Amino acid sequence: MNQAAQLQHQPQASNLVAYITQDSTEIQQAFKLRHQVFTSEFNTQLNAQTHGIDRDKFDDACHHLIVKESNSQRIVAYSRIITCDIAKKHHGFYTAGEFDLTNVIDHKKRYMEIGRTCVSDDHRSGSAIALLWGQIGQFMINNNIDCLIGCASIPFANGSRQTLAVIDYLRTKHFTTENLRVSPKHPLPHLQSNIDGKSLVPPLLKAYLRMGCKVCGEAHWDKEFNVADVVVLLTKDNINMRYMKHFLRAA
């Protein structure tokens, strides 16, 4: 769907629009948003040579999904989409750099990976996330995608015990079956505590779980961003259609 069609499809009360862009100016602004969110949210400093930009090799061949304020033209949310077709021709999936995906990837199925997902801190009340998911859901439908995968990050900003408590909660409630587990390249230790991990689940990861995503096993320690990453998996058969219909209306 082109930008004009997207604008017509937005609720009149909403100032937000969402679409996949090829515009270099918008993509550059999205890279700046990524850098801003990751450095503040994850309490880490990216390479000083990036000059306020978060970009890697996967950005040269992917779909850039943005959410933008229509009046200010400011990008407030972003997600990168890499399909299995793109992955085969270029650098594979980003997730494979942190995890062994052997048990998850079925080469008879079509996959898409979402990554570098971020939302500006003044747009985390739900609308921007709903628009992102609406576009992701529409992309799955339009491209006959069987499975969605991606990394969801849990920051250490509030202390490692809270982060590990979130993972412990995921382990008891949201892990996939054993045959659909990944192996992290830098695993974190197990920890059981009296901290309520459910209440500490980050908003984006919470949205993934509500959509029907499962977590494919233990977390990887991403040293560059100082976060715990987990792999989420959503099959088209497990989509929570009540949420998907809500998101598709938003998109």
Rank of each mutant, 00 (worst) to 15 (best):
H220V: 01
V232H: 04
Y243W: 14
A157P: 00
N238R: 11
I154N: 06
L180S: 12
L164N: 10
A228E: 07
K173H: 15
K236D: 11
G217W: 11
K214D: 07
K223M: 08
A165P: 01
V166A: 06
P189V: 04
E224I: 02
Q162H: 13
T176Q: 05
T172P: 00
L191M: 14
D229L: 03
C213D: 00
N143L: 02
V232P: 00
L204M: 11
K223P: 00
I145A: 12
M241N: 14
S160W: 11
L200A: 08
A152Y: 08
Y169L: 02
K173T: 10
V201G: 11
L188E: 02
R181C: 05
T177A: 13
P189N: 09
V231T: 06
K236G: 02
E178V: 04
E224S: 13
C216A: 15
N158Y: 12
P184Y: 04
N158I: 01
K198W: 05
Y243S: 10
L180A: 09
N144K: 15
S183H: 07
L234H: 04
F225L: 15
S193Y: 09
C216Q: 03
S160D: 12
G212T: 05
A207E: 02
N240R: 07
L164E: 06
L180V: 03
N143C: 05
L209F: 08
I195L: 15
